[in-house]
Simulated scan of single mutants.
Amino acid sequence: MRIKEVIVVEGKDDTVAIKRAVNADTIETNGSAIGEDVIERVRLAQATRGVIILTDPDYPGERIRKIVAEKVPGCKHAFLPKEEAIAKRKNGLGIEHATPEAIRRALQDVKEEMKEYISEITWEDIVDAGLTGGEKASDRRMRLGKILKIGHTNGKQLFKRIQMFQISKEAFAEAMSQVLQEEKK
């Protein structure tokens, strides 16, 4: 599988994991202290080939995703579910621990950022679905993010991603139905 876009990852081990899974070029941020030289390379990659951000499904990874997306508009996003990024033999969480199949699935489900789109889904829909403030809210957001392939977030970030990735009211309703069915089991 050849990926045209350049994939932004956190470090060298992530690059190794990407290259085991697909034929692609990467840019490493080397952590969350992203230098202007890295941002310039990402800007150049975005202008010439496009960019996919694939960072670890944890707080630092989300922080890096946010910084890059703010400084380089129009990036695409790939998300790896936490359970597919957990180290098998030692403690650790990250892209470097994912199987090649999991990485390929994440890259096949790339989401494109659309800042000018206003979703049919309102903040009230998020609240009414029990995705904020309740004891089951975090678990519901995690499962919803996995079904919609937009990652696990807090309530406000979930709403922003639903807007950004143009999740339709129909897709949201179907995914919430699945989340609630799983809850009953």
Rank of each mutant, 00 (worst) to 15 (best):
P57D: 11
P81K: 05
L131T: 09
A173I: 06
R104V: 10
N91H: 09
P57R: 11
A102S: 13
K169M: 05
I3S: 04
A24L: 04
N91E: 13
I67V: 07
E5F: 02
P57Q: 09
K4M: 06
E83G: 12
V22D: 05
G145M: 02
Q108W: 09
V51P: 02
T99D: 11
E36Q: 06
I18F: 01
K156W: 14
M164W: 12
G133D: 15
M176H: 02
G145D: 04
P60A: 07
H152N: 14
M1V: 12
I86T: 11
G74T: 11
Q163V: 09
L54H: 05
V179F: 03
N23C: 04
H77Q: 13
E183L: 07
R105Q: 07
V16P: 01
G155R: 13
I52W: 00
R140E: 01
E124R: 15
E170L: 12
K111L: 06
E101V: 06
I103W: 00
Q157N: 06
E84W: 11
D139W: 12
P81W: 06
P100Y: 01
K146A: 07
A69H: 05
R65P: 04
Q178I: 03
V179S: 03
L44F: 05
E183G: 04
S32Q: 10
Y117W: 07
D58M: 15
I67T: 11
V110N: 07
L93Y: 02
G151I: 03
V38P: 00
F172G: 00
D37F: 08
D13C: 10
I121A: 07
E84K: 14
